[in-house]
Design a protein around this nucleic acid. Structure first.
Length: 806
RNA sequence: GGGCGAGUGGCGGAACGGCAGACGCAGGGGCCUUAAAAGCCCCUGACCCGCAAGGGUCGUGUGGGUUCGACUCCCACCUCGCCCACCA
């Protein structure tokens, strides 16, 4: 038989069609089988099409999904579209096309691209967040959140571009300027829907202990939630018996060192006290100037600290009883803690700088440093001084003691503070889920009744911005003006839409029962399929998407919908694929690689192998189209080997041993996400086959079964060429037998004082003593041991012998 | 400023504290061919000694430490990447 070229262009689509026709990758609803739920982050179908970064995660978990099926699990590996989003809306505005049409075109393109790579997705469960049958349930969850007091309206600043006349999402703000026009972004206060994620802060943090996430993912979530323990303390204001200034501190031990107070410019007390101070005009001017500043200006690190004293008003230090000045400064944020701080310049760096600049007193209350030169902030060292009852205590003890004193005296208490903010859930955009609320002048906010869901996005003439900051929906009078669902009087719909994080916060539940029109999914199926067993995605989603979806899931658990309190059992992440030049891939840099080109030139299998082989899965790796060449050579070599396969060839010891070692390595490496070395060990076995005159068919078949998750098309084709009527897809994953992987004779290195001087062959059954004797007797070490005496011999079984001599 | 990663041949990268460089790419030599491409075989960390077979020294960002033994563990530092950033 003459050698042929592996014709991927003909073979790959053919098998894709067979798999699809037979539905081999469909998850079954036979709930008696053990299940395994594999999940990748569903893509945002952008106009640019798939990027070689997407398949990295999809291929890796595709390997896992295929292996699990072969291990006998009922596997759910679904796919869908996270299709609401700004780029689509912007493209629609620019070209005058309807976002629905744009989305359909983009998803069609993505679907075509993904199918050509041969992922084992269950396409029968495809979902789309912009489908009213899907967002009906997103809206339903919102109504439940509202019912349970977790959704509320609040005045919140938004990022506003004065030149585009539009509110911007955080991702549209680049270094304080508008991404599209470059004008500075200012803050504008607007009434917005908020979700009370902070109510779940404690559980979101504590329950990290119950899940199997990569440590760095846990750390990042924990830092984002940002729990700090400390105390809230009330400071009285001289001459204002009715007013209290409440602050949060993590260092109540330094209370005696407080020499002034600082309020955020937006703090209500600023307004209330302005009239009582002797420089009201100056204070007002400062507050107004701060409001005009952009967030970027306010948080710029290099910026000089600024502030203004509220002259004539004084706070009372509850510890020392002294009167201290009150300042207003924009380095204090209204959004964290209580928006007011006690300043301890001796032991806080920012307070120290501020005190220096404005000539405020610095008092040392913890000895151990030199507060004239720098703030002494080391909490583990030093001793309390100038602090009355705390003198002589260590800071950690003093914190507890002072908190007790404060509680006893009734002007404060121990408390926990989170960095996590409530979730701003409103967007003033068209292309998002309408928020199903109606505002009635008589009844206030009234939810749209559940039986009226989905509340569909109305057709609009223009998606252009309104110029007022309202969503384009506000321009459609007959949609906005509706009778109040409660009293029937004239009312108006909410015109804000949901952020694109909404649809992705629960999508993994919809895959479980995607066509259910009675519930977001049936309880039995939810019980069977949740939680997701393995979820892989990008590190960039750790703090937003991952946290938001955990929050929604916990809420759904609390109201009896979700059967588990955590959505994902295991979460891993992949590294970014960079351009060939080592820079981030982007259109602007001109270094984007299109998977279509790769699949056209090298085939889907070579592309998949390269995605896995290119490097450590969790590291960022530059793309190299050259690397694909090696993969297609490997596939071609495997293709050529089929001629040498023989049922008559005896399975020799070396081949059998290597085969079992490969079964072990490939299996272990898939589980530990070392896909690059898993491919390498398949290559090693392939290279060994290359050296044989005839390949025993027993070994060849096991090889094809193991190759299948990585390069499914060629594996399926070669399997069928053996005359099999069934599919390699449905073969069981091979069993590893340690006894058969064991070597009979092992080469052991002999070292003298840590340097390799020779090698010996030892039998695998030899005892350490026998190995030692054999090593000492070997000629190769004679020279190195000349004139020395052996002090010690270390035998590492199966590895080496180290002779320590001097 | 904080958090998290990472620094290994010409390149991508391997390596439970135990023979550094698996597996590939690129490069060199050979076979095949009228020739080329493809394929196959061999070589390929640096330096030194030797005609050769072979032998030796140095080598995992830098400097220390622990250990019989360190790419791996500990301390300090340098460089790069990502995320967060005046968080009281």
């Amino acid at each position: 038989m003459a050698k042929t070229t592996y014709d991927f262009a003909e073979i790959e689509p053919r098998w894709q069609q067979v798999w699809e026709e037979k539905g081999v990758f469909h998850a079954s609803d036979d709930l008696s089988k053990p299940k395994y739920y594999v999940l990748i982050e569903f893509p945002y179908p952008s106009g640019q099409g798939l990027h070689v970064g997407h398949p990295r995660s999809y291929t890796a978990l595709d390997v896992v999904a295929r292996k699990r099926r072969m291990e006998g699990f009922n596997v759910l590996y679904p796919i869908g579209w996270d299709a609401f989003g700004l780029p689509t809306e912007n493209f629609a505005i620019k070209t005058g096309q309807h976002p629905i049409a744009v989305t359909r075109r983009n998803t069609d393109n993505f679907r075509r691209q993904l199918k050509r790579i041969g992922f084992s997705f269950d396409w029968s469960r495809e979902i789309d967040t912009t489908d009213p049958n899907y967002y009906r349930w997103t809206q339903w969850i919102f109504l439940k959140l509202w019912e349970h007091g977790l959704a509320y309206k609040n005045e919140m600043p938004i990022n506003w571009c004065d030149s585009c006349k539009i509110g911007l999402a955080l991702e549209e703000v680049k270094e304080g300027t508008c991404e599209r026009c470059g004008a500075p972004v200012v803050r504008r206060v607007r009434s917005q829907w908020m979700l009370r994620i902070t109510k779940y802060a404690e559980r979101l943090l504590n329950d990290l202990d119950t899940v199997d996430y990569l440590p760095k993912i846990k750390t990042q979530q924990a830092n984002w939630i940002g729990r700090s323990t400390g105390a809230e303390v009330d400071f009285r204001i001289a001459g204002h018996a009715d007013k209290r200034m409440r602050i949060f501190t993590t260092r109540p031990d330094t209370l005696f060192g407080v020499t002034y107070m600082v309020l955020a410019p937006e703090h209500p007390l600023v307004g209330e006290l302005t009239a009582s101070c002797s420089n009201p005009a100056e204070v007002k001017a400062y507050v107004e100037a701060a409001a005009r500043k952009t967030d970027f200006e306010r948080t710029e690190v290099v910026k000089e600290v600024t502030g203004i004293e509220m002259k004539g008003v004084r706070a009372l230090n509850p510890a020392s009883g002294k009167e201290i000045p009150i300042w207003v400064a924009d380095y204090v944020l209204i959004s964290y803690g209580t928006g007011a701080i006690m300043a301890v310049p001796g032991h806080d760096e920012r307070d120290w700088r501020f005190a220096r600049k404005f000539g405020l007193p610095v008092v040392e209350v913890i000895s151990g440093g030199n507060v004239d030169e720098a703030a002494f902030t080391d909490i583990d060292k030093g001793t309390l001084v100038n602090s009355g009852p705390l003198d002589g205590l260590k800071p950690d003890v003093a914190i507890k003691r002072m908190t007790e004193l404060v509680e006893k005296a009734g002007y404060g208490h121990a408390t926990t503070q989170y960095r996590l903010r409530d979730w701003i859930f409103s967007r003033q955009k068209y292309w998002g889920e309408p928020i199903p609320m109606v505002h009635c002048p008589a009844c206030g906010w009234v939810p749209v009744p559940e039986d009226q869901l989905p509340l569909r996005l109305p057709e609009v003439e223009r998606y252009q911005t309104t110029g007022t900051g309202e969503s384009p929906l506000s321009l459609i009078a007959d949609w906005v003006n509706v009778p109040c669902p409660k009293c029937g009087g004239p009312a108006k719909r909410e015109t804000d839409t949901m952020p694109n994080w909404a649809g992705s916060s629960w999508y993994f539940l919809r895959y479980i029962d995607p066509k259910n029109d009675k519930a977001l999914a049936s309880p039995e199926k939810l019980k069977y399929w949740t939680p997701v067993d393995w979820y892989n995605g990008g590190m960039e989603h750790t703090t937003l998407h991952l946290l938001y979806s955990r929050f929604w899931h916990k809420f759904l658990f609390d109201i009896g919908i979700a059967p588990t309190s955590e959505p994902y059992k295991k979460r891993t992440s992949h590294g970014l694929i960079l351009g060939e030049n080592g820079e981030k891939m982007s259109k602007a840099r001109g270094n984007v690689v299109n998977p279509d080109d790769m699949v056209r030139d090298f085939g889907a299998d070579a592309f998949r192998l390269y995605e896995l082989f290119m490097g450590a899965f969790d590291q960022p790796i530059p793309w190299s189209t050259n690397g694909l060449v090696g993969m297609s050579r490997f596939i071609q070599r495997v293709w050529d080997m089929q001629e040498k396969v023989s049922a008559k060839a005896a399975l020799d010891a070396a081949t059998n041993r290597l085969m079992h070692q490969t079964i072990r390595d490939v299996g272990e490496r898939i589980e530990s996400m070392k896909f690059n070395t898993a491919v390498a060990s398949l290559m090693t076995l392939g290279n060994h086959f290359g050296t044989l005159d005839a390949i025993p068919s027993a070994a060849w078949e096991k090889f094809l079964v193991m190759l299948f998750p990585f390069a499914p098309h060629v594996a399926e084709e070669l399997w069928s060429k053996l005359g099999h009527k069934d599919l390699v897809s449905t073969q069981p994953w091979p069993k590893f037998d340690p006894a058969q992987a064991k070597e009979d004779v092992i080469e052991v290195a002999i070292q003298v004082n840590g340097k390799v001087r020779g090698r010996i062959q030892v039998s695998s059954g030899a005892t350490p003593k026998e190995v030692e004797a054999q090593a000492l007797a070997d000629d190769s070490v004679k020279g190195s041991l000349e004139g020395k005496s052996v002090r010690k011999v270390i035998v590492v079984p199966g590895r080496l012998v180290n002779i320590v001599a001097s």
